[in-house]
Amino acid sequence: MLDLIWLILFLGGILVGALTGKIELVTGTFFSGANEGVKVCLDLIGLMTLWLGMLEIAKQSGLITFIARCMRPLTGILFPGVPPEHPALGAIIMNISANILGLGNAATPFGLKAMEELQKINPDPSTASDAMCTFLALNTSCLTLIPATIIGVRVAAGSSNPTEIVAPTIIATGLSMVIIIIIDILWRTLLRPWYRRFKRC
């Protein structure tokens, strides 16, 4: 599926560019796009280093394990494949909390740490585990209490009530998070076993 989307983006872009006479623009975009990708990574280096340092202190002082233990009833349902008190769970909870509070800068380092920990207990290192899929589903559908960036945009544009969009955002993100959790659990427990049996027949 990823292959297909990537091919459509790449080939579709080149084709449309060629047909509409924008091929020089496309050529230029290859280089600027590649540069942009590296620039995002460069921005991430400092942030990652700072947060991973802080996270190590939190981990060695036992805070991460403590948080993981408190959330066990919830993580037990969502991540049945991850042993209780595994450091991955602590990092996952920190990532989701950062997302809920709208702290994008903090969320990424926690998330990457969580992936690293989940990879340690992944039986096939080139394929995503169930826990990874659940984690990323939570991450992308996450409840947002403070859409800080867009409130800033609205303030700058002179809105008479810049925060009026907060309530619908909270309702929409909360609902979509619940829906995604249900779909993920249904897929793991019911639909996938059926699908596999069907394929074997």
């Binding site: 790449f10 579709g12 623009l25 496309v26 975009t29």
Partner: peptide
Amino acid sequence: VAIKVFRVS
């Protein structure tokens, strides 16, 4: 690169 090409074109 893929996303930018798709948008710019």
